[in-house]
């Protein structure tokens, strides 16, 4: 330490002081988001901007997709205007937790570790996550990924599953979105890519010559709306809203429009992932 200059020591001291002070900022109280929304007249929604068919951008620059259609119904139900905030997979939870948006309708897979930091609603859509590779690759299980380079969208479910299950000599390449990960495998920079089933279908259209096929089914994923924890009123309202659009058939219309099939039967509960809250 004494070998470092005076300024470095001061800088370090500053850093430490800042860490300590930051730790002492008291927890800020959670307010009723629903009241805020009605008062403001707008609902601020975090949606994905580049992950078709969930949330992406059309040629006019407008957000479109499953999540956006659900949000439009929600805004209509509340009688407010939606205000879209594009997020990416890694930035969506921080964006919610730091209060930049009221909720996330951002293709959020419902998993226990995420349920610890955000409040999920009941699911509104289902997805199948895959590991995809070219036909000549002999892969049927995670262990076959030994020595291979697997491209994933940083921090998404497939990343987590592959990281946990693949042999230690598997090289996991993490990118900021699906397109970069797919690009890595198409350009031969990776041997396999983690992709959901619908983007894979899109790839069939856009790159008809590709020879990628599904190799490993990572999981069937339920997708829910996410809010900050401790807001019972908002959570109850959202669950009720989703029940109503399921019953009215509007949710099915959305599913048919984007995914080409009716939505599946939704579970009434998932282990370790509460749809409701007491607080």
């Amino acid at each position: 330490m004494h070998k470092l200059g005076k300024a470095t020591r001061r800088t370090m001291l500053g850093v430490i002081t800042a860490v300590v002070t930051a730790g002492m900022i008291p927890t800020m109280a959670s307010a009723g988001t629903l009241d805020d929304i009605k008062e403001r007249g707008t609902i601020r929604v975090g949606v994905l901007g580049g992950e078709p068919p969930w949330g992406f951008t059309d040629a006019k620059g407008q957000p479109v997709g499953v999540d956006i259609d659900v949000t439009e119904l929600l805004a209509k139900d509340l009688g407010v205007k939606p205000e879209y905030e594009r997020v990416i997979v890694t930035s969506r939870i921080p964006t919610l937790l730091t209060g930049k948006v009221d909720l996330l309708v951002a293709s959020m897979g419902m998993f226990p570790d995420r349920a610890k930091v955000v409040q999920f609603t009941r699911p509104y859509v289902a997805n199948v996550n895959l590991v995809v590779a070219s036909k000549d690759k002999d892969i049927s299980d995670y262990k076959d990924l030994a020595g291979m380079r697997v491209a994933v969208n940083r921090g998404n479910v497939i990343d987590i599953a592959v990281t946990e299950n693949a042999p230690s000599d598997t090289q996991i390449l993490r990118f900021d979105d699906d397109a970069s990960a797919v690009q890595a495998v198409l350009s031969g920079q990776a041997d396999a890519v983690g992709l959901a089933i619908f983007p894979l279908k899109m790839l069939d259209e856009s790159n008809p010559g590709h020879d990628l096929e599904s190799k490993i089914v990572v999981n069937n994923q339920w997708t829910g709306i996410a809010t900050r924890k401790g807001d019972k009123e908002f959570n109850e309202y959202l669950n009720d809203f989703l029940d109503r659009i399921e019953e009215s058939g509007e949710l099915n219309e959305i599913s048919l429009r984007w995914l080409g099939s009716e939505h599946p039967e939704f579970p009434s509960s998932l282990p370790e992932i509460p749809f409701t809250t007491d607080q």
């Binding site: 901007g49 580049g50 992950e51 078709p52 992406f56 951008t57 059309d58 620059g61 905030e85 594009r86 997020v87 990416i88 930035s91 964006t95 900021d176 979105d177 699906d178 397109a179 970069s180 797919v182 690009q183 198409l186 899109m202 790839l203 856009s206 790159n207």
Partner: peptide, 22 residues
């Protein structure tokens, strides 16, 4: 673009994701 703000680079990423023509 890396915090998700839609400027030129991010617009490029969106279009890449929809066209797969990076």
């Amino acid at each position: 673009s890396i915090v998700g703000f839609t400027e030129l680079m991010r617009s490029g990423q969106y279009i890449t994701n929809a066209t797969y023509q990076p």
